[in-house]
Amino acid sequence: MTAPGAAPGRAAPPRRPRPRETGAAPAGGRFSQSLRRNLTAHGFLVGAVLCFAVFSWYPMVREFFLAFQRTEGGEVTWVGLDNLTTVLDDPAFWQAWRNTLLFTVLALLLGFAVPFVVAVVINEFHHGQGYLRLLVYLPAMLPPVASVLLFKYLYDPGYGLLNELLGFLHLPGQQWLQDPDLSMLSVVIASTWMNMGGATLVYLAALQDIPGELYEAAELDGAGLFRKIWHVTIPQTRLILSLMLLMQVIATMQVFVEPFLLTGGAGPEGSTTTVVHLIYQYAFNFNDYGAAAALGLLLLVLLAGFSAAYVRLSRAGDE
């Protein structure tokens, strides 16, 4: 039996339920709902902010005030720029800056170029890249003390492997860490080996993002290996290279671990004394925390100025 007015043999269409009319939720309710949904994420965010505030931002602010203070017998007095004057009048100040700049230049020649070359070589292998990446990154996984002990053995003037190799080649042995002319270069070589793993992996990831069609077009134009690197590889990885250059300069200007563990910090005739090691001496050897903070603040201002100038020049070059 069909409903009146309906066509015979055809069922009546089902009625669609009316949508319920709901009013707009208040802004406070939406915020509380979002906060409850993301409570875990907000908790992790608060923890990260607290860690940065306690271990990064507070020491920076504290250092700024210490640079203009002097503590004697538990009493803190404001001395203005006296701490900075003390640092500038120290003969070791200029030697430390010369050594730091020398380390930075040598580290850029070795530590910046060698990882890129190694990444290019590994990228040419079609098989076994995973093992090669592990082999290159292995030094970065070793504790710095273990790596330094290894290089101390290599550099030993009596039974070191390097002098043994020189003797095998009928060449005179060298005082690698005891010679003022060789000590900084020896530290740079050790630092490059210890820290090149991470940079190599970054370069390798950038190289693998380069389209293969560019290399094929270069080969059709008759380009060899070096021309492909110069005209394809370097332009395609320019942003990564510029970023790694900035990070390399900042890291090398703050070098401390390698000279401190290999040569005791100062080295022969002060040849490996760096700015950060001088800060360490002011703070822990001389108990002059104000001078240490003033020198640290000076290094911070210098690196911040260099970073700002580098970013500005990079933007100007892109435009």
Rank of each mutant, 00 (worst) to 15 (best):
Q95P: 05
H127G: 00
D82N: 11
L132N: 06
Y137V: 12
T77R: 15
G128Y: 10
Q95H: 11
V136D: 02
N83R: 09
T86S: 13
F125N: 02
L135N: 03
L138Q: 10
L109P: 06
A140W: 15
T104V: 12
W97D: 01
Y131P: 03
A96E: 02
V120K: 02
I122R: 03
D89K: 11
D90F: 07
L135R: 00
P139F: 02
P139V: 00
G80R: 01
H127V: 13
T86M: 09
H127K: 11
R98Y: 04
V105T: 09
V79Q: 04
N83H: 05
V117C: 04
T85S: 13
L110W: 11
A113C: 15
H126L: 10
A113I: 15
F103T: 00
A96I: 02
L132S: 07
H127E: 08
L110P: 03
L101S: 09
G111A: 01
P91T: 01
Q129W: 08
W94I: 09
Q95D: 12
A140H: 15
P91F: 08
V120R: 05
A92F: 09
D89F: 04
P91I: 01
P91L: 03
N123F: 01
V87F: 08
N83V: 06
L109F: 12
L135D: 04
L81D: 03
L106A: 07
V105N: 02
L109S: 06
L84K: 03
F112R: 09
L138C: 10
A140T: 15
T104N: 09
T85W: 10
F125S: 09
T86H: 11
L108E: 00
A107D: 05
N123P: 01
D90T: 00
A96T: 04
L102N: 14
L132R: 02
F112A: 14
H127L: 13
P115R: 08
V87N: 04
R98A: 08
A140P: 10
G130W: 10
T86W: 09
T100H: 02
T104R: 01
A92S: 12
F116Q: 12
F103A: 04
P115S: 08
W78G: 08
G130Y: 06
N83F: 08
L88K: 00
I122V: 15
V120F: 09
L108Y: 06
V136K: 00
F125K: 01
H126W: 08
N123D: 14
D90N: 15
D90H: 07
Y131F: 11
L81Y: 09
V105M: 04
M141S: 14
I122L: 14
F125P: 01
T86C: 06
